[in-house]
């Protein structure tokens, strides 16, 4: 049965120190809560994470480009109304449209992939404390119950203000 320990830190370096120690000790399931992005520092401690978003962005943009092109060319071919001595398939305007749709679908893909990977939106109850939104850093470690004692120790040593255990149902 897995349970978690949550510790609150007033300072980021202490938290990071604790995290580093736990990591070394072989704890994998470490989550760091922070009121501000400390991505670099966390990466330093916990190792850099993969960035899956960029592929989505890329393919989203590519889809957007083809969507725009198809829209402009296709609708022109569906209903032919010649204009301005221009061919039915006119390249320049299509490029403009495709440019915009590239960006639009790129943005959408980024948005969707972000939400997907960040598991948002999520409205059910999760481990959280409102202090995190203000000025406290949190360290959540999830492990088998017997290993949690060590975690608590580490956290306290590192200078956590408060350490609590969270039992899951």
């Amino acid at each position: 049965m897995n349970h978690s320990v949550l510790g609150f830190f007033p300072y980021a370096d202490r938290l990071l120190g604790a995290a580093a120690r736990l990591k070394q000790a072989g704890y994998r399931n470490i989550t760091i809560f922070s009121p501000i992005p400390i991505v670099h520092e966390v990466d330093h401690v916990l190792g850099e994470k993969k960035n899956p978003i960029k592929f989505f962005t890329f393919f989203g943009s590519l889809t957007g480009f083809f969507f725009g092109t198809t829209l402009a060319f296709g609708t022109a071919a569906l209903y032919i109304l010649p204009r301005f001595g221009k061919p039915v398939w006119s390249v320049t305007p299509t490029v403009v449209i495709a440019y915009e749709t590239t960006i639009l679908l790129g943005v959408f893909a980024t948005l969707v992939s972000f939400l997907f990977f960040a598991r948002l939106p999520y409205y059910k109850k999760r481990v959280y404390d409102i202090k995190i939104g203000v000025d406290r850093f949190g360290l959540l470690v999830r492990a088998e119950e017997e290993k949690l004692r060590y975690v608590e120790e580490v956290l306290k040593e590192a200078g956590a203000e408060e350490v609590k255990r969270i039992y899951e149902d």
């Binding site: 022109a76 071919a77 010649p82 204009r83 301005f84 001595g85 221009k86 061919p87 039915v88 398939w89």
Partner: peptide, 13 residues
């Protein structure tokens, strides 16, 4: 063939 037609400016002829 379509492409050729569709690239013909304004369908003049």
């Amino acid at each position: 063939e379509r492409f050729k037609i569709y690239r013909e400016p304004g369908y003049y002829k």
